[in-house]
């Protein structure tokens, strides 16, 4: 079984590659990235820059030259996005390139990660969001809205290419010692400002669970979207405490203004958009992943947060 992976050096790639390496059924891993991952045995490295104008043909060549059984499109950004347009280029245009190439190469399987944050945190959300809930995204967040756009592309691709097994894994915030994403950055602060009077429910996925879910997608019989969430929920304040930090409730308007000011000065560590997620719950229902994908989370949200705490010390 040959697997192709984009974004192998990102958080998802780091979680998935070791599992693919360890999977005896996987003969080789075609890494399509700007940089070769370290310490791997099965990897065939093919340098592709998804943001380049010629990325699509590069990809098509790479995929048709030596056909692969599955493509993991993991090239998404989770670090602090300082260059918004570049991020958009990579995520949206890059995905477009990947999807086009995948269509041309008649890929049997395509796996794309997404976020439960794409549902949007809204007061009107049902208690548990199912996969068919509309993706409202987050009005101010490029980070989230790019993912929403990607999802739209993937859905369109799936409709046009019913032969390709397309899976979208919507991850709750990933927590783990090796990860760097808005949630971990938020929770590794000593004091985490929150919104006074609100304590939304948060979910989280332990990194091990996330890697397992990605790996499971390799053999899943079903296609479509799956919410990948950890066991249980925690209120934000509880999550913060579990992660070893202290919540500091601030009145909303003040908090917002402060974050904006910091953002303008370039010192912002928290995206303003995160406020929405501190305001309302966005709890996704992981039932489908469990029944259809066979993904049963081993770690409770608490454990995920606690793992974060251990990694800090």
């Amino acid at each position: 079984m040959r697997i192709a992976v984009t974004g192998a050096n990102g958080d998802y790639g780091k979680l998935l590659l070791p599992r693919l390496e360890a999977d005896p059924a996987v003969e080789s891993i075609l890494v399509l990235d700007t940089k070769e991952p370290e310490g791997t045995r099965k990897v065939e490295f093919h340098r592709v820059d998804l943001t380049r104008y010629d990325a699509e043909s590069e990809l098509t060549d790479a995929l048709t030259e030596r056909p692969v059984d599955a493509l993991f499109h993991l090239a998404f950004l989770f670090g602090p996005i300082l260059n918004g347009p570049l991020a958009h280029e990579l995520e949206v245009i890059g995905t477009m390139n990947v999807l086009t190439a995948a269509g041309r190469a008649k890929l049997p399987r395509l796996v794309v990660p997404s976020l439960t944050a794409t549902y949007g945190a809204r007061g009107n959300n049902p208690a548990l969001l199912r996969e068919n809930s509309p993706l409202f995204g987050c009005p101010h967040s490029r980070f989230v809205n790019d993912k929403v756009e990607v999802e739209g592309q993937v859905r369109a691709f799936r409709e046009r290419h019913p032969d390709t097994h397309t899976l979208v894994l919507r991850f709750a915030p990933l927590l783990g010692r090796s990860l760097d994403n808005p949630a971990t950055r938020l929770l590794t602060q000593a004091v985490v400002p929150t919104l006074l009077g609100f304590d939304p429910l948060w979910q989280a996925v332990h990194e091990d669970d996330a890697g397992r879910a990605l790996h499971l997608a390799l053999r899943a019989e079903v296609a479509g979207e799956f919410n990948i969430v950890g066991r249980g929920v925690l209120p934000l304040s509880g999550l913060i405490r579990q992660a070893g930090a202290q919540p500091l409730p601030l009145p909303g308007p003040l908090f917002r203004a402060a974050l904006r000011a910091l953002g303008v000065m370039g010192a912002g560590t928290l995206p303003v958009a995160l406020l929405d997620y501190m305001h309302y719950s966005w709890v996704a229902d992981g039932e489908r992943a469990e029944s259809a994908l066979g993904f049963v989370p081993l770690h409770h949200v608490k454990d995920a947060a606690a793992a974060l705490r251990r990694s800090q010390s």
């Binding site: 929150t194 249980g232 925690l234 209120p235 934000l236």
Partner: peptide
């Protein structure tokens, strides 16, 4: 909003 709570 600071209650925490772990048995939700």
């Amino acid at each position: 909003g600071t209650g925490g709570g772990s048995r939700l």
